[in-house]
Design a protein around this nucleic acid. Structure first.
Lengths: 105, 105
DNA sequence: ACAAGTACCTACCAAAAGGTAGGGTACTTA
DNA sequence: TAAGTACCCTACCTTTTGGTAGGTACTTGT
């Protein structure tokens, strides 16, 4: 791959605009291959606020990385899964994790 | 890899704290395998301000991802290269680029 | 003489991101 | 009756991030 000038259309920038947020990759990784409810997700990601989790989940749904299934029950029940496109990010995230495991900065 | 609860010590968070910035991966990718001067780097990354480029380069040097070589010349000449650790990030970045090429969101 | 290139630095300010704290609903459990 | 669960929403405020505009020092080209 040869190195082009990085302008606003370069694929790296476009990707980072989507998944460059503080919580995005964390959320995608925690959903992973499973079906997970909102509440469990929140407990898995220590320190995230409800506002951030909700807004990021909505964002990821809009972008087609996450699928949301609401059940018309009381108390409410909502399940999240990764779409096929979302799952494509898992290998990248695993590499980042591996990098973190290999190095202490 | 089983999914642990993501707290402040999880390797993904630690990695993202380093390379999660707006410009970090762009800079690392542009340096790539080459030896590049400050000015050329700036021209390659369209839209970055001098302040950001300088501060991020310093940060990446401090963390050991980038090596800096200054020449005692007039006009000044400074060359940047990736360290071995920095180069370990290139495959991850290439995957992100590939992802960006495959999808238009 | 003066602008431009070269690699920075600093102070100040604007924008974006994220956190806090409150609200709401409808049901269950103590 | 009160508290707790579950999944949100909104307004407000703080923190972080990044941009702008100025400066340095020295040299070369016009």
């Amino acid at each position: 791959m040869n190195i082009n000038i990085s302008d606003e259309h370069c694929p790296l920038r476009r990707t980072l605009e989507i998944i460059g947020g503080k919580w995005t990759m964390l959320i995608i990784f925690q959903i992973n291959e499973r079906t997970i409810r909102y509440g469990e997700l929140k407990r898995c990601i220590v320190g995230i606020s409800e506002k951030m989790l909700i807004s990021q989940l909505k964002f990821l749904c809009d972008k087609g990385f996450v699928h949301k299934k609401s059940f018309a029950e009381i108390p409410p029940k909502v399940e999240y899964t990764l779409t096929d496109i979302g799952k494509e990010l898992l290998p990248v995230i695993n590499q980042l994790i591996q990098f973190g495991l290999n190095h202490k900065f």
